[in-house]
Nucleic acid binder design. Structure first.
Lengths: 357, 357
DNA sequence: ATGAAAGCGCTAACAG
DNA sequence: CTGTTAGCGCTTTCAT
């Protein structure tokens, strides 16, 4: 095999195939593209020629004509978060069956990055967008905001709602999930409950649920127990945020919360590590509840109680709605535009006795 | 704001901008594209016009001309595997800085899916490809095989080697990692060691390392202790494979291995669940070693000993080499084409005494 | 400094 | 059934 180095093998075009097959480019398009009709003879010749040249159609040129790219963008905070990777996985599996590709973008909860991703994706002329927005409420006041998201392209919002945008959205009932978790702790006798989150919108709703539960049970809402720092500068998969927050919360023995509610998996892990570092015992010294279930939750000692989101449903519903919009641009998704899925409190041992009430 | 419903707002083109600005399309291209030169006046007018129309350049048309798409494909087994999601995360973060997007493809270890993904990606005219191939050795004998991968497009192989292909590759030293883990168990007195993998190439190398270690210590290589079933039909994130394998391995008390070596995170979790189900204790009843480290490993009781891959290095080296190829197509990567990174045995408590020898 | 025009590879009328 | 041809939106010579 003579190595014609440097000589980048030319990409064959439909024209080359046409010449070799002795037909017109239109005919080649017809047999390869599967539209129109061609004689058996022509079909044969074209296939043969295409094979011989190892012809690979130029999707870019096709997109140019057809005005569709068969790709959708997925913007999430961090693909390393099992919650998002599960969604990506499920979404991709249904997309690929329809010939779509998925372009993944990690914002790290940075609004600016989100905007620049949006720009990239729109330039790429994606057919659809699925997004867990990192933009904070405040950043949306901006007058330019309305221009950031193109309402002309099919979009589905997941995980978090984006106010003043009329896209369909699929998310968990963050308020209720947190309300239930908090109530659970209260019923178990906890009065001082720490909660660890961050500045993203989803977490605000969860903190509200927590707050309401406290209030409804005549307990004070003490902001000292709310750790809501920003995620900035936290490396992906970095567990230190949760550790830091926990150590902070448990610093003063007398004010120490008797329970901690961590608002995502990474934070939960951080809490567990910190509690362990401090030589404290769960649930006797401090109870723990996490947001999002994980495989090892039931194997830890004690097993960890969690608020479980129906990730599968979120992903499935979201992608089916998005495809609906893509394939039928006139679909009006006005009614029932927002679907809020309930969460499930999975009670294991990390909050004390295994009550079932 | 009158809602001109249905009337899909027209995408503005460079021509619209040109007209509004009162210049030619060439000039618009020059100021927006940042090449050539334009008068201050023209520049001003163009920018204004572009802003007013919220003009978004058509990347497809650009790609058509420039013959570059600014996107790279990433083919992995399953993005839900923390090992792959970490790689994706790191790779994406360096790519985005250079204006590239990343298209993620999950093969689920299915060779056919890999081939169809490859086709999609090549049609999309990706600028580069990073791949952890799912193709088994046997599938590569196929005469068509050589045509499956286009040597004309920059490619980097990660995690597993693909024989007879002259692409650069970055992977862990699977043989050595497994050899060390197995030796560790042997030195701790284990003689019957079960190993759980699957039919993918990486795992073969690991089993070979295990085998060599056994042999070098005058222990028999007993295929009854090797669980190497196929992954087919296992759902993403499904832990049942590991559970099934473990229960199988531990079925007959008298032949029972005293240690189990699980070849990826998901399998490790399965092993832990199964062992727990069976009411056995780690490490007394059975020792456990896992492949790939994980945050909770040190929090489990006992903490789990693992073979740790330098995921960060794999991702970083791989992407830098890929970019090198993309940006400088004439780079000859002949020497040192293959980089094999060593693994690290992280000894915790799951194999018995915390020896350090 | 700027405009006209060719052309990237393909699809889809349209005409035959 | 098949070929000719006109673009899709942009970049980029080549003139001016």
């Amino acid at each position: 095999m003579p190595r014609k180095s440097e000589q980048k093998s030319k990409e064959y075009t439909i024209k080359d195939v046409a010449e070799l097959a002795g037909v017109s480019t239109a005919t080649v398009g017809r047999v390869l593209g599967g539209y129109g009709s061609a004689s058996h003879e022509a079909t044969q010749a074209v296939r043969e020629a295409a094979n011989k040249l190892h012809y690979i159609p130029n999707g870019i040129a096709q997109s140019m004509k057809k005005k569709t790219t068969k790709s959708v963008g997925l913007i999430v905070a961090n693909i390393c978060n099992p919650y998002f990777s599960s969604i990506a996985r499920i979404v991709e599996s249904v997309l690929v069956k329809k010939g779509y590709n998925i372009i993944i973008c990690n914002t790290d909860e940075d609004g600016d990055r989100e905007i620049s991703y949006l720009k990239m994706l729109y330039e790429k002329r994606i057919d659809g967008l699925m997004i867990a927005s990192a933009l904070k409420e405040s950043e949306r006041k901006d007058s330019q905001f309305n221009m950031t998201y193109k309402e002309s392209i099919p979009t589905i919002i997941i995980d978090r709602e984006i106010s003043n945008l009329k896209f369909p959205t699929v998310a968990s009932d963050n308020f209720r999930g947190a309300y239930e978790a908090t109530s659970h702790l209260i019923k178990l006798g906890h009065k001082r409950i720490g909660i660890i989150g961050s500045t993203i919108s989803t977490f605000f709703r969860r903190v509200e649920g927590y707050r309401q539960a406290m209030l409804d049970h005549s307990l004070p809402f003490d902001t000292n127990l709310v750790f809501n720092k920003s995620y900035k500068n936290v490396k992906p998969g970095d567990v230190s945020e949760g550790i830091y927050a926990t150590k902070n919360l448990l610093k003063y023995r007398e004010y120490r919360p008797t329970a901690i509610f961590a608002l995502n998996n990474l934070l939960t892990t951080g809490v567990l590590i910190a509690v362990n570092d401090l030589g404290l015992k769960i649930p006797d010294d401090v109870a723990v509840i996490g947001w999002d279930d994980f495989d090892l939750a039931s194997l830890l000692n004690p097993p960890i109680t969690v608020v479980k989101q129906s990730t599968y449903n979120i992903a499935t519903i979201a992608i089916s709605r998005l495809l609906q919009q893509i394939e039928n641009p006139n679909t009006i998704l006005n009614e029932e535009k927002k679907v809020i899925l309930s969460t499930e409190l999975v009670i294991r041992g990390s909050c004390g006795s295994n009550v079932t009430y």
